[in-house]
Design a binder for these strands. Sequence first.
DNA 1: TATTGTTATACTCTATAACTATA
DNA 2: TATAGTTATAGAGTATAACAATA
Lengths: 169, 169
Amino acid sequence: MPDTPPPLDAAQLGAYFALMEVAGLLRHAVEQQLREAGDLSYVQFQLLARLGLDSPSGSERMTDLADGVVYSRSGLTYQAGLLDRRGLVTRSPSTDDERSVIVAVTQAGRDLVARVLPGHADSIRRLLFGALTDDDVAALSDVLGRVREHMRATPPRSARPRAGRNRTA
Amino acid sequence: MPDTPPPLDAAQLGAYFALMEVAGLLRHAVEQQLREAGDLSYVQFQLLARLGLDSPSGSERMTDLADGVVYSRSGLTYQAGLLDRRGLVTRSPSTDDERSVIVAVTQAGRDLVARVLPGHADSIRRLLFGALTDDDVAALSDVLGRVREHMRATPPRSARPRAGRNRTA
DNA sequence: TATTGTTATACTCTATAACTATA
DNA sequence: TATAGTTATAGAGTATAACAATA
């Protein structure tokens, strides 16, 4: 016991709880909307959106996708498999490096994103931004952007070189 | 198709993505810390903390707990069952209303929260507040607090009176 | 040997629906 | 009839470890 450091001051607690609750509710709502509009989970949407909107080529390596979406490798394989089966992405071995797999959005994938996007944006505008001014949004974006940078810099899941000995106690 | 309303402006997109990523990473980290420190999920911690820190009596009705923790009833029953089995809470029928079940933290539950709390606060301070000034925290708390109020006012999961007809398409 | 990705497997969590009991 | 809670069940998602293949 490191002698009970003062947990968090009131403002910090408020910010933390508000963040978690808001993000939780928002994600819940968004998942629901995406599921109804396109039978997609949030993660699947993220993958499609990243490929379709971010990548110029519409394709990326598995590893690079995993880096951007937090997942474990196997989790990404699972999700990519689901998208593949629905014809929303294709997977093919890279010609450069035969170990790599290139995931590419299909036209069907792009269409689906396009179909789902307006409702998605709508949910967010309504729930998240419904009570905020432009200044609020700017402040939020600024502060959270800095937190994100900070978090990305901090090793989030790397501190795990040694396998084994990790259960219950 | 409602004729493609402009999705979201750049600032909104930035705030939205930052929020989701920050909350996701934070929750991931916090889950891990809680799991290691006390073999608790975030939800379980929330339940214990709510009972131990918020409720003066250390007890609450199932329904009231469910309202505060978003879950479905059955999900709460499941979690309460887990906590009960570990001796962290007890469940007993209310004397007022025999339909109700009163969940109460045990001393073991309080001890566990106390044991886990410092590390929990530590993670948050480090990850979430590590790059922020007091002003940032205040701004965050203010804006997100308002969003929370707004979201709570908006019916999040109520619009679901009719059962049935809800699958795939 | 290190990296990329898949597979097998086990487990946690969540939701729905059916059900019981009290108000 | 409405409310409180449980149970059964099914499904989605995630993580770990073992594995195969290429660099």
